[in-house]
């Protein structure tokens, strides 16, 4: 998607979701298997445990321009 197109359309927030491998990541997997619809602009990052996510990684995400962050355990 080009930048021009992006700005003309409604704002499509880029969300990063840090997902626990055993809970939310599996839930996301299931959501896919169930053909559930959810915003495509979410980027899922698989982590071994949501406790693994630390402030440094979250800050780096914002620094690189992510609009919102979801930590799902």
């Amino acid at each position: 998607m080009s930048n021009g197109l992006r700005s003309e359309r409604a704002f499509d927030p880029k969300i990063v979701a840090f997902c626990c491998r055993h809970c939310a990541y599996a839930a996301a997997d299931l959501a896919g298997a169930m053909r559930l619809r959810y915003p495509h602009s979410v980027r899922i990052v698989d982590v071994p445990c949501s406790g693994r996510v630390d402030p440094l990684e979250m800050l780096r995400a914002f620094e690189r321009g992510v609009d919102g962050l979801l930590v799902a355990g």
Binding site: D54, P55, L56, L59, R60, F62, E63
Partner: peptide
Amino acid sequence: KEVGILASELRM
């Protein structure tokens, strides 16, 4: 780690 956090904060 704290260096990384502060550096990131400062850049932003």
